[in-house]
Amino acid sequence: MTSRRFFAVFSIAFAAAYAVLYVIAIEYNLALFTYHPASGEFHWLVVPAADQPAMYWYGWMATSALGALAFAALAASLPAAWTARIWPGWSWAVPLAVMVVFGYILRGYFIR
């Protein structure tokens, strides 16, 4: 497998998997770590704070990036015959669909 084919499959799979994992991470609050901005403390996994806001955004991105990295590396390592016809449009179609999903999830901010 050439490095060009490897990175083509990797980048398409990463973009699609990252978008899906990101929305799952948010819906089920699967943050790899939590940041408490008032005290400046980091904690592994989801750690709510009683007396200050807790920030999960960094942790959601880390969860999604790690998961997508593993998925994309696996996809790129598959035999070329299995990935030869992968549609490059998955790299934008899945993130676009997830953007629409976020519009739906957050609709309460705009229609109340």
């Binding site: 990175f7 083509a8 398409i12 990101y22 953007m99």
Partner: peptide, 18 residues
């Protein structure tokens, strides 16, 4: 929406660059 869109954009960068 901005924070989520920006995060999704980061995930698209490898494909964009490639």
């Amino acid at each position: 929406l901005k924070e989520h869109f920006v995060a999704l954009g980061l995930g698209m960068l490898p494909a964009y660059w490639y």
